[in-house]
Amino acid sequence: MANHLYQNDLPDELDLGPVVAIDTETMGLDPRRDRLCLVQMSSGDGDAHLVQIAQGQTEAPNLTRMLEDPRVLKLFHYGRFDIAMLENAFGVTTAPVWCTKIASKLIRTYTDRHGLKYLLQALADVDISKQQQTSDWGAVELTEAQIEYAASDVLHLHKLRDKLEALLIREDRLALAQACFDFLPTRARLDLLGWGDDNDIFHH
Protein backbone atom coordinates (compact mmCIF):
# COMPACT_ATOMS: atom_id res chain seq x y z
CA MET A 1 0.00 0.00 0.00
CA ALA A 2 1.33 3.41 -0.99
CA ASN A 3 0.10 6.97 -1.30
CA HIS A 4 1.19 8.90 -4.40
CA LEU A 5 0.94 12.70 -4.37
CA TYR A 6 0.93 14.65 -7.64
CA GLN A 7 0.70 18.32 -8.48
CA ASN A 8 -2.06 19.69 -10.75
CA ASP A 9 -2.91 16.51 -12.68
CA LEU A 10 -2.58 12.74 -12.92
CA PRO A 11 0.55 11.43 -14.69
CA ASP A 12 0.17 10.75 -18.40
CA GLU A 13 0.79 7.01 -18.16
CA LEU A 14 -1.38 6.23 -15.12
CA ASP A 15 -4.34 3.88 -15.72
CA LEU A 16 -6.61 3.42 -12.70
CA GLY A 17 -8.78 0.77 -14.33
CA PRO A 18 -12.53 0.44 -14.95
CA VAL A 19 -13.75 1.41 -11.45
CA VAL A 20 -12.13 4.36 -9.68
CA ALA A 21 -12.96 5.46 -6.14
CA ILE A 22 -12.85 9.27 -5.88
CA ASP A 23 -13.13 11.84 -3.11
CA THR A 24 -12.27 15.53 -2.80
CA GLU A 25 -10.97 17.87 -0.13
CA THR A 26 -12.01 21.51 -0.30
CA MET A 27 -11.87 24.82 1.54
CA GLY A 28 -15.52 24.48 2.58
CA LEU A 29 -18.87 22.90 1.82
CA ASP A 30 -20.27 25.32 -0.77
CA PRO A 31 -19.19 24.22 -4.26
CA ARG A 32 -20.00 27.68 -5.67
CA ARG A 33 -17.86 29.52 -3.11
CA ASP A 34 -15.16 27.19 -1.82
CA ARG A 35 -12.28 25.98 -3.92
CA LEU A 36 -11.20 22.45 -4.71
CA CYS A 37 -7.85 21.59 -3.10
CA LEU A 38 -7.30 17.85 -3.50
CA VAL A 39 -8.70 14.95 -5.52
CA GLN A 40 -7.89 11.50 -4.21
CA MET A 41 -8.44 8.26 -6.14
CA SER A 42 -7.93 4.53 -5.85
CA SER A 43 -8.33 1.64 -8.25
CA GLY A 44 -9.04 -0.68 -5.32
CA ASP A 45 -5.54 -2.17 -5.25
CA GLY A 46 -4.56 -0.61 -1.91
CA ASP A 47 -2.77 2.39 -3.41
CA ALA A 48 -4.10 5.95 -3.34
CA HIS A 49 -3.34 8.63 -5.92
CA LEU A 50 -3.76 12.22 -4.76
CA VAL A 51 -3.76 15.28 -7.00
CA GLN A 52 -3.17 18.62 -5.31
CA ILE A 53 -5.05 21.39 -7.15
CA ALA A 54 -3.49 24.85 -7.23
CA GLN A 55 -5.50 27.95 -6.39
CA GLY A 56 -7.03 29.31 -9.58
CA GLN A 57 -6.33 26.13 -11.55
CA THR A 58 -9.00 25.44 -14.18
CA GLU A 59 -7.51 22.56 -16.17
CA ALA A 60 -6.35 19.03 -15.40
CA PRO A 61 -6.53 17.21 -18.75
CA ASN A 62 -5.69 13.67 -17.60
CA LEU A 63 -7.97 13.85 -14.59
CA THR A 64 -10.92 15.30 -16.48
CA ARG A 65 -10.48 12.79 -19.30
CA MET A 66 -10.95 9.98 -16.78
CA LEU A 67 -13.90 11.72 -15.12
CA GLU A 68 -15.70 11.98 -18.47
CA ASP A 69 -14.74 8.51 -19.75
CA PRO A 70 -17.96 6.46 -20.20
CA ARG A 71 -15.93 3.25 -19.78
CA VAL A 72 -14.80 4.19 -16.25
CA LEU A 73 -17.23 3.96 -13.34
CA LYS A 74 -16.53 6.67 -10.77
CA LEU A 75 -17.25 5.53 -7.22
CA PHE A 76 -18.08 8.14 -4.54
CA HIS A 77 -19.41 8.50 -1.03
CA TYR A 78 -21.83 11.45 -1.21
CA GLY A 79 -21.06 12.00 -4.86
CA ARG A 80 -23.46 14.94 -5.13
CA PHE A 81 -20.92 17.23 -3.47
CA ASP A 82 -17.77 15.91 -5.17
CA ILE A 83 -19.35 15.94 -8.64
CA ALA A 84 -20.41 19.56 -8.12
CA MET A 85 -16.94 20.55 -6.91
CA LEU A 86 -15.29 18.91 -9.92
CA GLU A 87 -17.70 20.55 -12.36
CA ASN A 88 -17.23 23.96 -10.78
CA ALA A 89 -13.45 23.62 -10.88
CA PHE A 90 -12.98 22.12 -14.32
CA GLY A 91 -16.31 22.38 -16.17
CA VAL A 92 -16.46 18.59 -16.37
CA THR A 93 -19.51 16.31 -16.14
CA THR A 94 -18.46 13.25 -14.15
CA ALA A 95 -20.23 10.11 -15.38
CA PRO A 96 -21.06 7.29 -14.97
CA VAL A 97 -21.08 7.29 -11.17
CA TRP A 98 -21.97 5.10 -8.17
CA CYS A 99 -22.59 6.52 -4.68
CA THR A 100 -22.26 4.48 -1.50
CA LYS A 101 -24.22 7.04 0.54
CA ILE A 102 -27.26 6.86 -1.74
CA ALA A 103 -27.00 3.07 -1.76
CA SER A 104 -26.88 3.02 2.04
CA LYS A 105 -29.92 5.30 2.38
CA LEU A 106 -31.89 3.12 -0.02
CA ILE A 107 -31.05 -0.19 1.62
CA ARG A 108 -30.13 0.50 5.28
CA THR A 109 -33.47 2.05 6.21
CA TYR A 110 -33.16 0.65 9.74
CA THR A 111 -30.59 3.35 10.63
CA ASP A 112 -29.89 7.03 10.07
CA ARG A 113 -26.12 6.50 10.17
CA HIS A 114 -24.91 6.69 6.58
CA GLY A 115 -21.59 8.47 7.05
CA LEU A 116 -18.53 6.77 5.60
CA LYS A 117 -17.01 6.04 9.01
CA TYR A 118 -20.17 4.24 10.18
CA LEU A 119 -20.59 2.36 6.91
CA LEU A 120 -17.04 1.06 6.95
CA GLN A 121 -17.39 -0.06 10.55
CA ALA A 122 -20.69 -1.83 9.91
CA LEU A 123 -20.03 -3.43 6.52
CA ALA A 124 -16.27 -3.68 6.07
CA ASP A 125 -14.93 -4.00 9.63
CA VAL A 126 -12.71 -0.96 8.98
CA ASP A 127 -12.24 1.96 11.37
CA ILE A 128 -11.02 5.23 9.87
CA SER A 129 -10.17 8.47 11.63
CA LYS A 130 -11.97 11.69 10.64
CA GLN A 131 -9.64 13.90 12.70
CA GLN A 132 -8.15 15.69 9.67
CA GLN A 133 -11.51 16.34 7.98
CA THR A 134 -11.61 20.00 8.99
CA SER A 135 -7.92 20.78 8.56
CA ASP A 136 -6.57 23.38 6.10
CA TRP A 137 -6.61 21.63 2.73
CA GLY A 138 -5.49 24.79 0.94
CA ALA A 139 -2.02 24.61 2.50
CA VAL A 140 0.85 24.46 0.00
CA GLU A 141 2.40 21.53 1.88
CA LEU A 142 0.06 18.81 3.14
CA THR A 143 0.99 16.98 6.31
CA GLU A 144 1.47 13.22 6.38
CA ALA A 145 -1.63 13.01 8.57
CA GLN A 146 -3.67 14.83 5.92
CA ILE A 147 -2.38 12.55 3.17
CA GLU A 148 -3.20 9.44 5.21
CA TYR A 149 -6.68 10.76 5.97
CA ALA A 150 -7.40 11.65 2.34
CA ALA A 151 -6.26 8.21 1.20
CA SER A 152 -8.43 6.43 3.76
CA ASP A 153 -11.55 7.96 2.21
CA VAL A 154 -11.05 6.07 -1.07
CA LEU A 155 -9.11 2.91 -0.20
CA HIS A 156 -12.16 0.94 0.97
CA LEU A 157 -14.93 2.17 -1.35
CA HIS A 158 -14.67 -0.79 -3.73
CA LYS A 159 -15.27 -3.23 -0.89
CA LEU A 160 -18.11 -1.08 0.42
CA ARG A 161 -19.76 -0.96 -2.98
CA ASP A 162 -19.66 -4.76 -3.24
CA LYS A 163 -21.39 -5.11 0.13
CA LEU A 164 -24.05 -2.52 -0.63
CA GLU A 165 -24.71 -3.82 -4.13
CA ALA A 166 -25.34 -7.30 -2.74
CA LEU A 167 -27.91 -5.85 -0.34
CA LEU A 168 -29.57 -3.82 -3.11
CA ILE A 169 -29.87 -6.95 -5.23
CA ARG A 170 -31.23 -8.94 -2.29
CA GLU A 171 -33.97 -6.36 -1.63
CA ASP A 172 -34.68 -5.74 -5.34
CA ARG A 173 -33.63 -2.07 -5.21
CA LEU A 174 -30.62 -2.07 -7.52
CA ALA A 175 -32.54 -0.62 -10.49
CA LEU A 176 -33.86 2.19 -8.29
CA ALA A 177 -30.35 2.89 -7.02
CA GLN A 178 -29.01 2.98 -10.57
CA ALA A 179 -31.63 5.53 -11.57
CA CYS A 180 -30.50 7.71 -8.65
CA PHE A 181 -26.84 7.35 -9.65
CA ASP A 182 -27.65 8.31 -13.23
CA PHE A 183 -29.35 11.48 -11.96
CA LEU A 184 -26.48 12.57 -9.70
CA PRO A 185 -24.60 14.72 -12.27
CA THR A 186 -27.84 16.63 -12.93
CA ARG A 187 -28.50 17.00 -9.19
CA ALA A 188 -24.98 18.42 -8.78
CA ARG A 189 -25.55 20.85 -11.64
CA LEU A 190 -28.81 22.02 -10.05
CA ASP A 191 -26.85 22.75 -6.87
CA LEU A 192 -24.36 24.85 -8.81
CA LEU A 193 -27.18 26.76 -10.48
CA GLY A 194 -28.85 27.62 -7.17
CA TRP A 195 -31.49 24.88 -6.87
CA GLY A 196 -30.05 23.35 -3.71
CA ASP A 197 -31.87 22.04 -0.65
CA ASP A 198 -33.39 25.47 0.10
CA ASN A 199 -34.89 25.72 -3.39
CA ASP A 200 -35.34 22.06 -4.35
CA ILE A 201 -37.58 21.77 -7.41
CA PHE A 202 -38.77 18.37 -6.17
CA HIS A 203 -40.27 19.80 -2.97
CA HIS A 204 -43.94 20.70 -2.86
Rank of each mutant, 00 (worst) to 15 (best):
L184F: 14
L174Y: 09
L190V: 01
L176I: 10
L176C: 01
L190Q: 07
D172W: 09
R170T: 11
L184G: 13
D197R: 13
A166Q: 12
L190M: 05
L174A: 10
L192P: 04
A175F: 11
A175Q: 07
D182V: 13
D191W: 08
A179R: 02
F181I: 06
R189P: 00
D197C: 11
R187G: 01
D172F: 07
T186I: 13
L190K: 12
D191H: 14
D197N: 09
L168M: 09
L193C: 02
R170K: 15
I169M: 15
G196S: 12
F183R: 12
L193V: 02
F181E: 06
C180A: 11
L190R: 10
G196M: 01
L193G: 09
A175D: 07
L190C: 01
R173D: 10
D172I: 09
D197P: 11
A175E: 11
W195E: 00
R170N: 13
I169C: 07
L184D: 15
P185C: 02
A179P: 03
Q178F: 03
C180E: 09
L167E: 12
A177G: 01
D172Y: 10
A188M: 12
L168Q: 04
R187Q: 07
L168H: 03
D182R: 10
G194S: 03
T186E: 08
A179Q: 10
Q178A: 06
D182H: 04
A188C: 08
G196I: 05
L193M: 07
R170I: 08
L184M: 15
I169F: 14
R187P: 00
R173C: 11
D191S: 15
W195A: 02
T186P: 00
A188I: 08
L176N: 05
L167Q: 14
R173N: 13
A166L: 01
G194L: 02
L184N: 14
F181H: 07
F183Q: 15
G196N: 11
D191E: 08
Q178G: 11
F181D: 09
A188K: 06
A177I: 01
L174W: 14
R173Y: 02
L174S: 02
G194Y: 02
P185W: 13
A188D: 15
L193R: 02
L192T: 09
G196Q: 05
L190Y: 07
